[in-house]
Design a protein around this nucleic acid. Structure first.
Length: 440
DNA sequence: GCATGATCATGC
DNA sequence: GCATGATCATGC
């Protein structure tokens, strides 16, 4: 390797990495033929290390550039419809070792040792192209864990550690945490090898620490816009910041809140009014709503009837009858939604006709219930193939059902039976939502 | 009173 | 023009 750089200097490594900008790896260095031929898959990061930087860090607990304390990561970007760039997927950071993490502290953890400082290289993802032919479309950056995000990252790490201490590695979910996720590793297929965990006999899927896509997007946006850093919860965790924001409105009527945030119901049929009110509350004093985006949290508003149960079920994304047959639960939209953390903003209708903000709480779906949702999804998948007009109803599951969701009855999609049916989506049962909210 | 089907306003 | 989050409307 003829490149001359100082492997103990972040600045020197970054300057060298910038030579990749606008090029592919294949254009930037010499890659042996046998690698070229099988380079469709594989890890671009390792190839950059081996053939561009001329290093071979292997599978170590140390960063890839140990003297500089810098870990190298490559990550794919895709374009939104408007042409702007976003992360294709989460950024996998380092494997989660169930046996080791239970002995670690945050400060001395493998994660902090390895990922405190990372060289991020961004390439444009192109389907079916070899990784060595993907272009690094923007400059790389050195990313240091930002001080204002440390409280949340630490909390996330500890949440994951606690689950393993509790013998629940098999129940880990990305919705458990806010910025740092415990994502699944590997294929996820039926022959996936499961791992032992220290405090339970149950085998668990292999996992890695990752930055959630939403968090990664904020990093990318800040980098593209040359913003110094992300923002602003300071010493707070997201939960703390959210509760603080809502606390002054708890118990207030919807009319009082409406006046206070200067947002008014436009018509009797203004179905997203409560939600917009909640968004206004969150963004009323600064940028907390951005924090939610960063953590990939979905906010859901719920109205409870005077008897305490919600009148309505909760809808998710529309699915396509023609596509669900080829999908897998683990990569489905519904599964992804259920692994997200939810911020419930709860309004209570009184017998006197008032509606008040009564409760704000974070929640994510427990493992057992996700498994039940999976059953409903798989049942739906099987039924769509046979008769898309006969899908799981409320009585078929305590957790979820399938129901129309469209602009009107003419808003349809084609089915495998050759018919067109109203668009439908998965819903969480109103009764199930009621139980959750009672226990928050 | 609940399950199911149908639809609305908004914002991008 | 459409996806989205949410709620309305009807029938049993």
């Amino acid at each position: 390797m003829e490149l001359d750089y100082d492997a103990s200097s972040k600045a020197s490594i970054l300057a060298t990495a910038k030579k990749l900008t606008g090029k592919t790896l294949n254009e930037s260095c010499t890659i042996p033929r046998e690698i070229q031929n099988k380079a469709n898959k594989g890890d671009l990061g390792i190839l950059v290390e081996n053939y561009f930087f001329g290093i071979n860090p292997g599978n170590s607990a140390k960063p890839d550039f140990p003297e500089a304390g810098l870990e190298l990561k490559t990550t794919g970007l895709v374009r939104r419809r408007d042409g702007s760039l976003k992360a294709k997927e989460r950024l996998s950071l380092t494997s989660l070792n169930f046996m080791e993490i239970v002995k670690e502290d945050w400060i001395t953890s493998t994660f902090v040792r390895k990922c405190s400082s990372m060289l991020l290289l961004f390439y444009e993802y192109v389907k079916d192209s070899s990784v060595i032919d993907r272009k690094f479309i923007i400059d790389p950056m050195v990313y240091e864990l930002p001080p204002e995000d440390l409280p949340q990252l630490k909390r996330d790490w500890e949440t994951i550690q606690k689950k393993i201490l509790d013998g629940k590695a098999h129940e880990l979910s990305e919705g458990d945490t806010f910025y740092l996720g415990a994502c699944r590793k590997g294929s996820g297929g039926p022959d996936e090898k499961l791992l032992s965990q220290p405090f339970s006999e149950i085998k668990a899927k292999s996992r890695a620490f990752s930055f959630k896509p939403s968090y990664l997007d904020v990093i990318i946006n800040a980098h593209l816009n040359s913003l110094p850093s992300i923002s602003s919860t300071g010493s707070e965790t997201i939960e703390g910041a959210t509760y603080k924001r809502f606390s002054k409105y708890l118990g207030k009527t919807i009319d009082e809140i409406s006046r206070d945030v200067n947002y008014f119901r436009s018509s009797v049929n203004h179905k997203s009014f409560n939600r917009t009110l909640a968004e206004r509350i969150l963004s009323s004093e600064g940028s907390s709503y951005k924090e939610l985006t960063k953590a990939g949290i979905q906010m859901k508003t719920v109205v409870l009837q005077p008897n305490g149960t919600p009148k309505e079920s909760m809808s998710f994304d529309v699915f396509e009858y023609m596509k669900i047959g080829q999908e897998f639960w683990e990569t489905s939209d519904f599964c992804a939604s259920l692994e997200q953390k939810v911020l419930f903003v709860v309004f209570q209708d009184g017998r006197d006709g008032t509606r008040r903000l009564s409760k704000v709480a974070y929640w994510n779906m427990p493992y057992q219930d996700r498994e039940e949702a999976r059953r409903v999804w798989e049942l739906t998948q099987a039924r769509v193939a046979v008769d898309a007009s006969n899908l799981p109803k409320t009585r078929d599951s305590r957790v979820a059902h399938v129901r129309p969701k469209g602009r009107n009855a003419a808003d349809v999609l084609p089915t495998p039976q050759g018919t067109n049916l109203t668009k439908q989506c998965f819903w969480l049962n109103a009764r199930y939502i009621g139980e959750i909210i009672q226990n928050l």
